[in-house]
Amino acid sequence: MTQDNHGKAHKYGMVIDLDKCTGCGSCMVACMSENNVPFKENETDKKDSITWMKVFKLTNGKPFPDIDTCYLPRPCMHCGGKGDHGHSPCISVCPATATDYGYDTGIVSQIYTRCFGCRYCMGACPYHARYFNWWDPKWPDGMEEYLSPDVSPRMRGVVEKCSFCYHRYQEARDRAYHEERRDHIEEGEYQTACTQACPAGAITFGDLNNPEHEVYKLVKPDPHNCGRPREPKAFRLLERLQTNPKVYYISEREWVRKAGDNYRKGEWGKEIKVSHGKGH
């Protein structure tokens, strides 16, 4: 296992084509049911609803008829952090080592039984990808029967987030070992629930370190530049913060690509230097 993010190990990531996304929310539903996400009695206040995968609605702010809308699904970005060394904003701040970076997968984990609910990681995450269990987990009567036995439900008072359906990775890895393929996992063997649920095929999932995988072909991550996309239509959310996410977005529309980050007046369109230095 290498202690950086550039080696031979897997680096699982996601590419979301925003021009294909219709905002139907299937990814959100699939994610909730796959990962045993509990319900609130009243779900009207979305700011404390648990949505590992959340679809944001963006508009270009123009009046009719020039108005344009874009739906942006946002899972956990599984940031590589400054310098892509695995020091994501949330991992470095967790006081109890309850969230960790898998150098073999690039996946940011969350250990529910270790988390004591200080919520510092939530403050550190600029994507609001982390959720707190404000209530005891509850499901409508009979729905407990549908819970996945592969995913542990979370207790009140701890933080949770998208795991890139890590239990599916474990299953694929176990199968590969069983079939004496060591850790050679085929692209189709490990796919997240949201990827499979998207009716428009907007979400692609795979190994960003593997040139054979579709995600690699779509964005062509630059290994010498912390995985920044070389594909001009691709971008990552808040690239300038150097969080180095493993979720990429693609859009033909310029205003959508611009909405992916913050730019001061006159900056958009110019070459902006993002120093991908060593970080902390």
Binding site: S92, A96, T97, A98, C115, F116, R119, Y120, R156, G157
Partner: peptide, 26 residues
């Protein structure tokens, strides 16, 4: 009062992540 699982408060000492400022605070 602030932590979601008060009974696990001691984890901050026992399982300390020395890179976290909050650990240093505690």
């Amino acid at each position: 009062i602030d932590i979601g699982q008060p009974l696990r408060g001691w984890f901050i000492f026992w399982h300390a992540n020395v890179h976290s400022m909050l650990t240093e605070v505690a």
